[in-house]
């Protein structure tokens, strides 16, 4: 039933370039991530938020740490920085203080930001440094071959917890909200539209804007924990995610068990003075007093 005014579709068309290619370093594709890895989806969501943002592309900065998610910066056609393991937020803090007009986004993994860099995470949230931080949480150390970390659920099996993990993991949004961030959210790699919307909101937020993105890690975490295919975990996210923006954050720890639900949402969006604003006020106050030259 196609009227003459309506165009015809047709079979797929093979092309050399993607419509997002101007925003990425497409010459570096295919990327290094495993089939079904959620990191690429996060990159796509970030790219679409970049395209929508009114902030000039020159001022958009991407900073990563080390590990699988650490490679994100290298695929973005921005001023990008691939730093050291755990230190991306500290690196970003320095740049953000030196250049408050930049829109800095840190994209890194759970082990990177939440474990080795956990101290930088909570202190940046405490200071409310005006940066965006995306933590792609795949529940384990992927690049080194699947070891347990500070976000690995209790009981989960990895190469270094072969009998089940005996460490209680961080409930990351609860932690970051308690530390003082202006914006705290959690989504999954399956929530592709909410991811982009949250990215866009984070670029507007003044202060520390944080998002945890739960992501499949098929070859290491998934295989041992009831999600043999990447698709299994994506379906888990689709079927078991409960959107609750007003969730009690103390109760949203992730178990990553196929029968348990996962609470997602934009949990915190509040106004607190950012670190850069407070530093700017301080400078203005000091300079108004005049510099008594000795």
């Amino acid at each position: 039933m196609i009227s003459p005014q309506v165009p015809h579709g047709g079979p797929e068309v093979r092309v050399p370039h993607h419509i997002n290619d101007p925003v990425i370093r497409s010459e570096r594709l295919p990327n290094i991530w495993c089939p079904g890895c959620g990191i690429g989806i996060v990159v796509g969501a970030y790219v679409r938020a970049l395209q929508k943002s009114a902030i000039p592309r020159e001022r958009q900065i991407s900073i990563s740490g080390i590990g699988c998610t650490g490679r994100v910066s290298g695929y973005l056609n921005l001023d990008s920085y691939h730093t050291t393991h755990g230190r991306a937020i500290a690196f970003a803090t320095g740049m953000a203080v030196a250049r408050p007009e930049l829109e800095i986004t840190v994209i890194a993994g759970d082990g990177d930001l939440g474990v080795i860099g956990g101290n930088h995470l909570i202190h940046a949230a405490r200071r409310n440094v005006d940066i965006n931080v995306i933590m792609v949480n795949n529940f384990n150390y992927g690049m080194t071959g699947g070891q347990h970390g500070g976000t690995t659920p209790l009981g989960a099996r990895t190469h270094t917890s072969p009998y089940g993990n005996v460490e209680t993991p961080f409930n990351i949004p609860y932690l970051v909200a308690a530390a003082g961030a202006s914006f705290v959210s959690r989504w999954t790699a399956m929530h592709v539209r909410q991811l982009t919307a949250a990215f866009s909101r984070m670029m507007e937020v003044k202060g520390f804007a944080f998002m945890e993105v739960l992501s499949p890690c098929p070859p290491t975490f998934g295989e041992f924990n009831g999600f043999p295919e990447a698709l299994d975990m994506m379906k888990y996210f689709r079927d078991k995610a409960v959107v609750d923006h007003n969730a009690d954050l103390s109760k949203i720890a992730v178990t990553a068990r196929p029968d348990d639900s996962v609470v997602v949402g934009n949990f915190v969006d509040r106004k607190r003075p950012s670190y850069q604003e407070l530093l700017g006020d301080l400078r203005a106050r000091v300079q108004a007093q005049g510099v008594a030259k000795k």
């Binding site: 309506v6 015809h8 797929e12 068309v13 093979r14 050399p16 079904g36 890895c37």
Partner: peptide, 20 residues
């Protein structure tokens, strides 16, 4: 009515696009 464009060499067969 839209057309689908693909870059076959980038695909890793994760099954997401056709599944979802």
């Amino acid at each position: 009515v839209s057309r689908v464009y693909i870059i076959p060499e980038r695909c890793k067969e994760c099954d997401y696009c056709w599944t979802f």
